[in-house]
Simulated scan of single mutants.
Amino acid sequence: MYVIGFICTLGASLGYGLLLSLTQLAFKKVVKRENFKAIMDMIIYQSIVATCATLLGLFASGEWNDINKEMQEYEMGKASYVLDLIFIAISWKVFNIGCVGLIFEISSLFSNAISVLGLPIVPILAVVFFNEKMNGIKAISLVLAVWGFISYVYQQYLDESENKIENRNTLNVTKEECNIRG
């Protein structure tokens, strides 16, 4: 089961990265507009496709029959169950708007780096507020998420430093050409 879980997790990560890259490609090649409406259109179309796929899977698997039982067994009651689902949906939409906005303004790579930076927050909050134990898997995932973000920031720093050196060299060559001509 661990192997299947690992493969599914890896596939989900690859799919999410591909989704971000395809969103950026769609902005450049298909949408070709630079405004908030373009971001909202992109989110709405992605959400419609995702909702249809989820509902298709829910009904095809027969799990829709278990929803009422799940709601009955929820510790805090039916109303809390529904409110949890509503607030989770709202939170994901806000997250989605932020991710697509980052893709629109900067890049899909930056959006993914910021998303990965947020991943360790949930286990840390669970340890602090719900007294969960910090086990090895949580610690490793925390370290990998922070390491990935730091790697991204460091690469951006190196690229920026290289650009500054190239700009200085270009300015020096231009000044020398002006001095020779003048």
Rank of each mutant, 00 (worst) to 15 (best):
V30I: 15
I4E: 09
L14T: 08
F104L: 00
G5S: 11
L56M: 13
D41T: 09
L158A: 10
I121Q: 07
S61M: 06
M71L: 11
F130S: 12
T23Y: 03
K175S: 04
V128I: 15
G136F: 08
S80E: 10
M1R: 10
V128Q: 07
K133P: 02
E162G: 01
I140N: 02
T51R: 04
G15N: 03
Y81N: 04
M1F: 13
E75F: 09
S161N: 12
F6C: 12
K164Q: 03
V30C: 09
G118A: 06
N169D: 05
I114F: 06
Q155W: 04
L83V: 13
P123D: 06
I88E: 08
L85N: 15
M71Q: 07
V143P: 01
I124C: 13
Y157M: 02
V49I: 15
K69P: 04
L144W: 06
E34V: 10
V173K: 11
G17Q: 03
I121W: 07
Y81A: 10
S47G: 15
D66M: 11
S80G: 08
V127K: 04
S107F: 01
I137V: 14
I4K: 14
G136R: 02
S108A: 15
A12M: 12
P120Y: 05
G17V: 04
I103G: 00
G118M: 07
L142T: 14
K164E: 01
Y81C: 08
L125R: 06
G57H: 07
P120L: 04
F95Y: 15
E34M: 10
V173S: 09
K78T: 15
I48Q: 01
K133C: 05
S13E: 05
L144V: 14
N65P: 01
I137L: 13
D159I: 05
K29E: 10
I103L: 03
V116W: 00
K93V: 15
M42P: 00
A26T: 11
S107I: 03
T54L: 13
V146T: 07
I86Q: 06
V153W: 08
V31I: 15
A60I: 10
L58D: 00
A126D: 12
N65R: 13
S91P: 02
F149Y: 09
L18A: 15
M134R: 07
K28P: 01
A53S: 13
V173A: 12
L171I: 05
